[in-house]
Design a binder for these strands. Sequence first.
DNA 1: TTAAATTAGTTTCATTTAAAACTATATTTA
DNA 2: TAAATATAGTTTTAAATGAAACTAATTTAA
Lengths: 149, 149
Amino acid sequence: MTFNLEKFLPYRLRILYDTITHSFSPIYIKQYKLSPSEWRVLASIAGSGSVTAKQLGKHSRMHKTKVSRAVFELSKRNLIVKVPNKNDLRETFLEVSELGGEMYRKLSIRAIEFDNKMLSCLTQNEQLALDEIIEKLQKHAETNFYSHD
Amino acid sequence: MTFNLEKFLPYRLRILYDTITHSFSPIYIKQYKLSPSEWRVLASIAGSGSVTAKQLGKHSRMHKTKVSRAVFELSKRNLIVKVPNKNDLRETFLEVSELGGEMYRKLSIRAIEFDNKMLSCLTQNEQLALDEIIEKLQKHAETNFYSHD
DNA sequence: TTAAATTAGTTTCATTTAAAACTATATTTA
DNA sequence: TAAATATAGTTTTAAATGAAACTAATTTAA
């Protein structure tokens, strides 16, 4: 069997991710002046209600300095609020502000639209299959391969 | 309908790509001292026989400066050779050297192994479905969304 | 044909990134 | 307890990145 880079999963995923993300990112970059990290952090916080930077970073696989800087920027713009944990002052809970929630709601509408349009090239069955396949691969990769920290 | 980041395709693809690539990259990084770009460029050249930096960058979605630097390094280590195009001296054809071919063959064996192990969590049908789905999404994203150059 | 515009690839420079060192808390253990 | 170790998050430093300027060659158009 001869190797074919074009069919190599990591290579294909990278190209697909790159293409798709660059199709969506202009929306939050241009219209809301958010960096990719900032959008990701805002959406993560909004989705979870309240998280620490550590939890957020681990869950969304972002480097802690990236999270730290995104949090700093979002906080500066009053899009999120930092609530110190009274029981452990090393960590702070992150929550979206009124303003941040508004921005998030507007952006998430665009995100849903985008996702629907993107997935519209697949049949209903394929969409379901893709969901399951990603889930399986992710779990498999995490338990059998991935190691970091 | 409420937005769920965890089910958002760009987000999921990024995390899956990140997990998978970090599972494979130690092989070429530690054992062959190649950067991700260098591995990608080496494999691209090996796969196509002879390409220009421009073609390679476009096809594999790498920034031209990244390609330029990877080519410089690989060339310095005699893993690839640069063959000037006699008919247009602005461009040079890139080809793998004897040494580079050897490294590529060894690495591609590891890549095939990795891919097989990664895909082994899917049924045969799911593997076929995934192939088709990626193909469809890639084409759809390129023609309907992506714009860069 | 020569001047203007274009192209492939490189280099420079400003920005982004991650690794490592750091600060401040909190926990463990002697 | 007090000293030693660990942890969350930030800042500093060094490396990687991409945008823009550049070089050398080619093509277009006056």
